[in-house]
Amino acid sequence: EGLCAVCGDNAACQHYGVRTCEGCKGFFKRTVQKNAKYVCLANKNCPVDKRRRNRCQYCRFQKCLAVGMVKEVVRTD
């Protein structure tokens, strides 16, 4: 048992190249599959942790990419 590289929640295994929780795994997968574009309403440096991970989708997705999650391994079929 480890911690999610994105939000610090409990994470049992790796998803898309990085140890993440189920919440961040699902968020990343949905974002890539929908080709979603998010906008940060602040300064693009919002805190992303277990308690606040749902407040800014833009910053959460940027953190997913920054920690090494790989868009190309998300299935789109």
Rank of each mutant, 00 (worst) to 15 (best):
R53W: 09
F27Y: 00
V73R: 08
Q62E: 04
K63D: 02
K44P: 02
C59W: 00
R52K: 12
R75W: 08
L41K: 06
C59R: 00
R19C: 12
C56A: 00
K25N: 12
C40R: 00
P47I: 12
K71L: 09
R52C: 09
C64S: 03
F27A: 00
C46E: 00
Q62V: 06
N35E: 13
A42D: 02
V73D: 07
A36G: 08
E72N: 12
E72G: 09
K29W: 04
Q62N: 03
K44M: 12
V74I: 13
V67W: 01
A5P: 11
N43P: 05
Q14K: 15
H15I: 05
K63C: 03
K37L: 07
D77M: 08
Q14M: 14
V18G: 07
R19Q: 09
K63L: 03
C56E: 00
Q62W: 03
V73E: 09
A42L: 07
R75C: 13
K25M: 13
G26P: 01
A66R: 07
R30L: 06
Q14A: 15
V48W: 04
R55S: 06
G23I: 12
C21Y: 03
P47L: 11
T76Y: 14
F28M: 06
R75E: 14
V73L: 09
R19S: 12
Q57S: 13
R53I: 10
F28T: 10
E72L: 02
L3V: 09
L41S: 09
G26L: 06
G17K: 03
K29A: 12
K25L: 13
V39A: 07
K25W: 11
C46S: 01
R51F: 13
G68Y: 07
N54R: 06
V74D: 14
R52E: 11
K50I: 02
N43G: 05
N43F: 13
V70D: 07
G2E: 15
G23K: 14
Q57R: 04
G68E: 01
C46V: 00
Y16K: 05
C59D: 00
R60M: 13
H15Y: 04
D77P: 14
V67K: 13
V70P: 05
H15L: 11
A66K: 05
F61Q: 05
G68C: 02
N43S: 07
K63W: 02
E22W: 05
V73M: 10
C24V: 00
V67I: 13
N54C: 02
R30I: 06
D77Y: 01
G23Q: 05
Y58E: 09
V6A: 02
E72V: 04
K25F: 10
C13R: 08
M69A: 05
G23L: 10
E72F: 04
D49Y: 06
V18P: 07
P47A: 10
R30Q: 11
T31V: 09
H15A: 06
N35Y: 06
M69N: 07
F27S: 00
V70F: 08
G17S: 03
R60S: 10
C56R: 00
V18S: 07
K34A: 01
E72Y: 01
C64G: 04
F28G: 01
K25Y: 02
D77K: 08
R19H: 14
A66E: 09
T76F: 08
G23E: 11
C59I: 00
Y16P: 07
C59T: 02
V70E: 13
A42H: 15
A66S: 05
C46A: 00
A66V: 06
N43A: 15
K71Q: 15
K25Q: 11
V18H: 03
T76R: 12
V74M: 12
K63R: 05
E22M: 12
Y16I: 02
L65D: 02
C59G: 00
N54M: 03
G68N: 07
F27R: 00
Y16H: 15
F28L: 06
C21F: 00
H15N: 11
C4S: 03
R53S: 13
K50P: 15
M69S: 01
R60F: 07
Y16R: 09
R75F: 11
C21L: 01
E1A: 02
N43H: 15
Y58C: 06
F61Y: 11
K25V: 13
R55L: 12
L41E: 13
E72W: 04
V18E: 10
V74E: 13
V39Q: 04
V73F: 12
V67Y: 15
Q57C: 09
R75M: 12
C40I: 03
R30F: 10
G68W: 01
